Simulated scan of single mutants.
Amino acid sequence: MTIIGPQARAARALVRWPRDHVARAAGLDEEVLLAFETGGTDLDPDARHRLRLALEAGGAVFLPENRDGGMGVRLKFTTKDVRAIDRMENEGGAYGSDDV
């Protein structure tokens, strides 16, 4: 499934990741991602695929256009799940290097 810029921007907002994090995860320049999200440029198929995979790793689910409605994006997790994940990510205190 091909994603469009506004859909990527919506997915990024849903997963609550900053643009620089998504750009790094997708192997894109942050300015290129901004331009794509705002309709200023297009991405090649490989870059779109990497962007989609990065956003899906954060919990975004891309919805294709069908007879019931237009394309969209939603969260893989419920609001309750997201709160639990956020709580778990903040447990354990400070982290350090691991010599293993």
Rank of each mutant, 00 (worst) to 15 (best):
M1A: 12
M1N: 13
T2I: 10
T2F: 08
I3F: 10
I3M: 10
I4R: 00
G5F: 08
G5C: 12
P6W: 02
P6L: 08
P6I: 06
Q7P: 04
A8N: 01
A8K: 00
R9P: 06
A10K: 11
A10I: 10
A11L: 10
A11K: 04
R12P: 11
A13Y: 04
L14A: 08
R16I: 04
R16P: 04
R16H: 15
W17D: 00
W17H: 00
P18W: 10
P18K: 08
R19I: 14
H21C: 08
H21K: 07
V22I: 15
V22C: 07
A23S: 08
R24F: 10
A25S: 12
G27V: 05
G27C: 04
D29V: 14
E30N: 05
E30A: 14
E31I: 08
L33H: 08
L34F: 12
A35P: 12
T38H: 05
T41W: 02
T41I: 05
D42L: 11
D42I: 06
L43F: 11
D44Y: 13
P45E: 13
D46E: 13
D46S: 09
A47H: 11
R48A: 09
R48C: 15
H49I: 00
R50D: 14
R52F: 01
R52S: 06
E56Y: 01
E56I: 09
E56S: 07
E56A: 11
G58Y: 02
A60V: 15
A60C: 11
A60E: 03
V61Q: 05
F62A: 11
F62S: 06
L63N: 03
L63I: 15
L63H: 00
E65H: 10
E65G: 03
R67K: 11
R67W: 05
R67M: 06
D68E: 11
G69S: 05
G70E: 09
M71V: 07
M71G: 12
V73T: 03
L75I: 07
K76M: 15
K76A: 15
F77V: 12
T78H: 05
T79I: 10
D81R: 10
V82A: 07
A84E: 14
I85S: 04
D86N: 13
D86E: 14
R87D: 12
N90W: 05
N90H: 13
E91C: 12
E91W: 07
G92D: 09
G93T: 13
G93F: 05
A94R: 13
A94I: 13
Y95F: 06
G96D: 13
D98E: 14
D99E: 15
D99L: 10
V100R: 14
